[in-house]
Simulated assay, not measured.
Amino acid sequence: MRTNKKTLAAGIGSAGLLGLGLYLAVPAAAANPTPSPSASESPSSKPSGAPWRMHQRNGDAHPRRHGMGDFRGVHGEATVRREDGFHLSTWQRGAVTARSGATLTVRSEDGVSWTWTTDAKTVIRKEGDKSALSALANGDQVLVFGERSGNTRTAKLVRAPKKP
Rank of each mutant, 00 (worst) to 15 (best):
Thr7Ser: 05
Leu8Met: 13
Leu8Val: 15
Ile12Pro: 01
Ser14Met: 08
Ala15Ile: 15
Gly16Leu: 14
Leu17Arg: 09
Leu18Lys: 00
Leu18Met: 01
Leu18His: 04
Leu20Lys: 02
Leu20Ser: 01
Leu20Pro: 00
Tyr23Asn: 04
Val26Gln: 10
Ala29Trp: 13
Ala29Ile: 05
Ala30Ser: 03
Ala31His: 05
Thr34Arg: 02
Pro35Asn: 09
Pro35Cys: 07
Ser38Lys: 11
Ala39Gln: 08
Ser40Thr: 11
Glu41Cys: 11
Ser42Trp: 02
Ser42His: 02
Ser45Leu: 01
Ser45Asn: 08
Lys46Pro: 01
Pro47Asn: 04
Pro47Ile: 02
Pro47Arg: 01
Ser48Ile: 15
Gly49Ile: 02
Ala50Cys: 15
Arg53Tyr: 15
Met54Glu: 14
Met54Gln: 15
Gln56Met: 13
Arg57Asn: 13
Asn58Leu: 07
Asn58Cys: 04
Gly59Gln: 09
Gly59Ser: 14
Gly59Met: 08
Gly59Leu: 09
Gly59Cys: 10
Asp60Lys: 15
Asp60His: 14
Asp60Met: 08
Asp60Ser: 15
His62Lys: 15
Pro63Asn: 12
Pro63Gly: 11
Pro63His: 03
His66Asp: 07
Gly67Trp: 03
Gly67Lys: 04
Gly69Pro: 05
Asp70Asn: 11
Asp70Glu: 04
Val74Gly: 12
His75Ile: 03
His75Val: 04
Ala78Lys: 09
Ala78Met: 11
Thr79Val: 10
Val80Ala: 12
Val80Thr: 13
Arg82Gln: 08
Arg82Thr: 02
Arg82Tyr: 09
Glu83Asp: 14
Asp84Glu: 10
Phe86Thr: 12
Thr90Glu: 05
Trp91Ile: 04
Trp91Gln: 06
Trp91His: 07
Arg93His: 08
Ala95Met: 06
Ala95Lys: 10
Ala95Thr: 13
Val96Pro: 01
Thr97Asn: 03
Thr97Arg: 01
Arg99Lys: 13
Ser100Pro: 06
Gly101Asn: 11
Ala102Gly: 10
Ala102Thr: 15
Thr103Asp: 00
Leu104Tyr: 02
Val106Lys: 01
Arg107Pro: 09
Glu109Asp: 08
Ser113Cys: 00
Trp114Met: 03
Thr115Asn: 09
Trp116Pro: 00
Trp116Gly: 07
Thr117Arg: 01
Thr117Leu: 11
Thr118Asp: 00
Asp119Tyr: 11
Ala120Lys: 01
Ala120Val: 00
Ala120Met: 06
Lys121Asp: 04
Lys121Glu: 10
Lys121His: 08
Thr122Leu: 09
Ile124Phe: 05
Arg125Asp: 11
Arg125Thr: 14
Lys126Leu: 06
Glu127His: 15
Glu127Trp: 15
Glu127Ser: 15
Gly128Asp: 14
Gly128Arg: 02
Asp129Leu: 09
Asp129Ser: 14
Lys130Tyr: 10
Lys130Thr: 04
Lys130Phe: 05
Ser131Ala: 13
Ser131Lys: 07
Ser131Met: 11
Ser131Leu: 04
Ala132Phe: 00
Ala132Asp: 11
Ala132Asn: 12
Leu133Asn: 03
Ser134Val: 14
Ser134Trp: 08
Ala135Gly: 04
Leu136Gly: 01
Asn138Tyr: 00
Asp140Trp: 01
Val144Thr: 05
Phe145His: 07
Phe145Trp: 02
Gly146Pro: 06
Glu147Ala: 12
Arg148Trp: 07
Ser149Gln: 10
